[in-house]
């Protein structure tokens, strides 16, 4: 996949591209507002209190979305995150039930995520011949496998002392801690990706790995950092997911990787690397969340919601392609 992106060196953020991106994000914002109006119209229960409450479970996934944005910009992919969520949540429950104080449990949860991410990063940077999809497919099975073995024959564990988790679920005003944290992380990560040299280097790598290497960028080091980061964020997700589950089992976090990638892509981040903006992913995440909540409140067949999301994904990637082709034609015409 990385090879394909090699030709578009111009994809490093600059005037023209940035404008296009802004327009995509502008469109997403319009859609976001439209979805909310739509929600209010179709469901009598679609109000701020309910939406913020229902959002809890999905918010946990948004944390991973930030990391996935970084990974996708690199031109890589990580499909092991769902399993990392499962493993870190499992370890949190087991350590909590072993009587460890809650702050230690939190550290263990985040630590497990970080270590998993570092393992991914290590393999991905040591064996650069391997596509990252395969590396993380392997670790996806392994991480969940470790969780399965630690959970034993029951395959499920509940957190006995939920005081700490309840504290995580407390609200400041109308907003929960996880909501505020998502907003703060959004600001931090968007700034890192857009404004720092670190972020620009990621775009450079994603656009053309070889060129980036020649330009003196330590490609493997940055890739390692990004994998560690997404692992850590999966740990954060595990923690907050636990706050709305109070327990973990072998299916916890199943399929999160695809949902998170869908958020990124719908937000305009290309899987081929070097293109897209985290702002888009951020808005897209909330578009999908609000849509799910609105349709859910009307008790629409859950499978049909998936069909709708799938259709949205395709439409969202086809539109820029079509409009791009049109502008390209116009440009060509005007040049001639």
């Amino acid at each position: 996949m990385a090879g394909k992106s090699g030709r578009e060196i111009s994809a490093v953020p600059q005037g023209g591209i940035k404008k296009t991106l802004l327009s995509w994000e502008g469109a997403l914002l319009v859609v976001f507002i439209a979805i909310n109006i739509f929600g209010v119209i179709i469901s009598p229960n679609y109000n701020a209190t309910n939406v913020l409450r229902e959002m809890q479970k999905y918010l946990a996934e948004v944390f991973i979305m930030f990391g996935m944005g970084f990974i996708l910009v690199l031109g890589d992919i990580d499909i092991s995150v769902g399993s990392i969520v499962c493993l870190s949540a499992t370890m949190a429950c087991l350590s909590g039930n072993a009587g460890l104080p809650f702050p230690i449990v939190v550290l263990i949860t985040l630590g497990v995520g970080l270590i998993c991410g570092m393992i991914n990063g290590l393999i991905a940077t040591q064996f650069t011949e391997l596509p990252t999809m395969i590396v993380t497919l392997g670790t996806q099975i392994i991480f969940r496998g470790i969780a399965e073995v630690s959970l034993g024959s029951g395959g499920s564990v509940s957190m006995q002392d939920v005081k700490g988790l309840m504290a995580l679920g407390t609200k400041i005003g109308p907003f929960s801690i996880s909501f505020i944290l998502v907003i703060v992380s959004a600001i931090v990560f968007i700034t890192i990706l857009n404004k720092t040299s670190f972020g620009r280097k990621l775009y450079a790598i994603g656009s053309n790995k070889t060129a980036a290497r020649y330009a003196g960028i330590n490609v493997e080091k940055l890739r390692f950092i990004c994998y560690s980061l997404i692992g850590f964020l999966a740990g954060v997700c595990g923690l907050f997911l636990l706050a709305s589950l109070y327990g973990a089992n072998t299916t916890t976090g199943n399929g999160f990787e695809m949902e998170v990638i869908a958020m990124c892509v719908f937000g305009g981040i290309a899987t081929t690397g070097g293109k897209g903006n985290l702002i888009g992913g951020f808005i897209a995440a909330f578009v999908i969340i609000c849509l799910r909540i609105a349709l859910g409140q009307r008790n629409i067949n859950t499978q049909l919601i998936l069909v709708i999301i799938g259709a949205m994904l395709i439409v969202s990637v086809v539109i820029p392609a079509i409009s791009g082709a049109i502008t390209a034609k116009k440009k060509r015409a005007s040049v001639n």
Binding site: I77, I261, A262, V265, G310, L313, V317, V318, A321
Partner: peptide, 22 residues
Amino acid sequence: GKVAPIICTMGFMYIWRGMAYV
């Protein structure tokens, strides 16, 4: 459409699976 294969097929992954249920 010059769409990245993983994205396009991911969309249809949701769609056809959903249709199978429907």
